[in-house]
Structure formats: structure tokens, C-alpha cells
Write a protein that binds this DNA or RNA. Structure first.
Lengths: 201, 201
DNA sequence: CTTGCTTACTAAACACCGTTCAGTAAATTT
DNA sequence: AAATTTACTGAACGGTGTTTAGTAAGCAAG
């Protein structure tokens, strides 16, 4: 029957209206200033309505943070076409930095804020997986082809990811005040070059 | 005259009563659950009283985060006695990890949360300076003595700090769910060893 | 010793927040 | 046409940071 299908479709549309509005307001004004009441007002529904589609605010922002991961994956996936894995690794670092500094609120939600993680009570956090997997595979290929020094793959992947995240998150959360802000991009680029040069075979 | 001195002293005592209570409650229950109303209730004053000693919640938590830096400096300073700078660098990494995982709330406030930084409208964030300076100096000594590869000092210091912070902050904010929690300490130790080995001359 | 001023403090309100629940009105099924 | 299901909301609950008008005690000067 067509009615229940239409209803299901309408339900999905309503859910994504909430999600889109939440995302837009979050990217525009940040997490703190995006309240369920604000979102509800914008879509001209009562705040209580949101609870018919999302268990709570954390669940809603879990979905927002998922959209961030999709956006990042869209930028990362094409890089897998690059034959030379070391060149690819450099490019990944560059794209990652670009993403972080052009979408700091997304980055914050994806890798720093506690809110989305609180929506996750079991331990399967699939979101970051695709991107992390690309990084791991690229590093593995670099090792296989003797482009970087051989070492434990997991340890190396963790190291590279942590290093770049450290740079980005310290910048986003304003902990690099000892350096003038305009010097940071160049400092970061040098820093990444430095580390990757050390890793080169 | 003694009266105004006593008053000044009492004012300082009141301020530090608030600070101590806030710190204690924060370390016990976390930032979110430590409200000005809770703190006020514990010290048996009205919430408005706190505003006679602190401009706002961010200012209060700026002072709490400062106490965190003092605690870290207390653990770091003795290490400067170690003659061999490379050995000292290893030890600093170890102590840093220890501090982070034994005082995750402090670490969060010091290096991740936005709250304390919002209390800072000029650009002089002195807090981390002492600790950062020790790291920079240790790395400089390592380079001078030819223990690690020579490179730009600032770039290398930023790299090392970002790397370790990356590890810690991803763990604290639950972004290492792809690894079982009990394997993280060992993974981190290997990761640090790995990086430092790459840096060795 | 009393008057006036300063200081320390608070009650109450303001404007928010996330969340819950009883109730309503429309759509759908029987 | 009646009964039921669905989608939604108004209003409240219990919290938050913050401001302000007012009070009562402490102190200084007359």
C-alpha cells in the first residue's frame, strides 16, 4: 500500500530537515549556540517534535558529525588514485589540514567534542573508519615499496594520525598562542615535512 | 593600619576557598557537572557571591587550569636535573603521559577545553610557557650534543608536542575506539619510542 | 555614641537550556 | 460513523550562567 510508504518517506524527510537545519546552524554559530529550541524555531515546529525523530541532542549531533566524516571521505577517496603512496601520503596530510581549517566546527565535532561520542554506548564507532583505513593502507603501501622505513603498521598509523591531529586540535582550541596566528600554516607545513622526511627510507 | 590588611587577606582567603572548592568539585565530577550554584552551595554562600571574586565562570576555570599547569611543572622541573638530554626527553614523554592519564580532567582543561581560553582576551597565555620552554630547551640540547638530527628548533618542538598531545587528546576524547582500551598504553609507548628513534641522530 | 559611608553579601529575577508528558486534532482504519 | 493511530504541541520541570536591587554589618568621622 502507498500510504504507509508515503508516511515513511515523510518521516525521513522530516528527520533530514531537522538534521540539515541543525548542521547549518551548527556550522554557522557553533555547537554551544545551537539549541534544540533554536532549531525548532527555525523549522517552525515545537522543540518537543525533535524528540520524535532523535533520542536527544547528542544523537542529533552524532548524525551531524557523521556528515562531517562523509565530507572528509569525499575529499580523501579521490587521492587513492595517486599511484605513488608516498606522494599520496603527503597529499593526504595537505587535504586533511585544508579540511580542518576550512571546516573547524566539523573537525571539532568529529575529533574533539564529547557530545557525539556520548550518543555511542557500544564500542563500534564506524564513522572515522573509512578515512583511517585509507591512511593505514597508504602507509602500508609505502612500507611495502620501501618508501618509508619499515615499522609496526599499527604503531606508525597511530603516530601519523596523532601527530597531525595534535597540530590541528591545538590550533583549533587556541593552544598555540605562543606563535602569531599567521605563522601557523607555514609552521605546520614544515612540521609535517619534517616528520615525513624522518620516516622516509 | 592593620584592618585593611586583614580585609585584603580575608578577600584572598575567600577567593582561594572558591578556587579550591571549584578545583576539587571539577576533578571529582568534571566540568559540566560543576556549576556555580553547586560550588556556592558547598561553601554555603550565594551564587552571586562568586561574582564578587571572579568575573565569570570562565575566569574561575582559567585559574583552575592554571593550577593544573603548576602541578605539571612540579613534575617536569625535577627532570631538568637529568644530564643526558635525550634520556631527559624520553622521561619527559613518560611523565607527560602519566600526568595526562592520572589527571585527565586537568589535562582536558589545560589543553582541550575552550572555557579557560575564553577568559583570555589578550594574547598572552603564560600558563603553558614554563613547560613548553623545558621541552624546547631539552630538544635544543639534544641537537647541540648531536643526539638527535639537527632541524629547525621551533619546528621540532611543535612536532614533538603536537604528536604527544595528539595521542593523549584522542584517547581522552574517546577517538581510539578502534583499539581495545587496555592496549592503548602499550601502543602509545611504542609510538613514542618509534618517533624518538626516527629523530635520533 | 551616634551618624553616615563602605563593604560583603544575598534573594529574586532574567533569559536561557535539554527534556518529559498530558493532551489535542487530524489522518487513517474498521 | 466510530474507533484508533499518528503527529504534534503547550506547559511544565529542573537545571544553567548572570545581573540587580536591596540589606545588614563593619568601620570612620563628628
Amino acid at each position: 500500500m502507498g500510504i504507509s510508504e508515503r508516511k515513511e518517506r515523510e518521516k525521513q524527510e522530516m528527520k533530514s530537515l531537522i538534521l540539515e537545519t541543525a548542521t547549518q546552524m551548527f556550522l554557522e554559530h557553533g555547537f554551544e549556540k545551537t539549541s534544540l529550541r533554536n532549531i525548532a524555531e527555525k523549522i517552525e515546529y515545537s522543540p518537543a517534535t525533535i524528540y520524535l525523530y532523535y533520542k536527544d541532542k547528542n544523537q542529533l549531533f552524532y548524525d551531524v558529525h557523521e556528515k562531517g566524516f562523509e565530507l572528509l571521505a569525499e575529499k580523501m577517496t579521490p587521492l587513492m588514485q595517486i599511484e605513488n603512496p608516498l606522494e599520496r601520503l603527503y597529499k593526504m596530510g595537505e587535504i586533511y589540514l585544508d579540511f580542518a581549517f576550512h571546516n573547524p566546527e566539523y573537525y571539532d565535532l568529529m575529533f574533539i567534542m564529547t557530545a557525539p561520542m556520548e550518543a555511542l554506548h557500544d564500542d563500534n564507532w564506524d564513522c572515522g573508519f573509512a578515512n583511517y583505513e585509507m591512511l593505514r593502507q597508504t602507509i602500508a603501501e609505502c612500507m611495502e615499496k620501501g618508501l618509508i622505513k619499515k615499522a609496526d603498521l599499527e604503531v606508525t598509523t597511530v603516530s601519523v594520525f596523532s601527530f597531525v591531529h595534535g597540530l590541528v586540535s591545538l590550533a583549533i582550541r587556541q593552544r598555540f598562542k605562543m606563535y602569531p596566528e599567521e605563522t601557523l600554516p607555514e609552521l605546520f607545513r614544515q612540521s609535517i615535512d619534517n616528520i615525513l622526511n624522518l620516516m622516509k627510507a
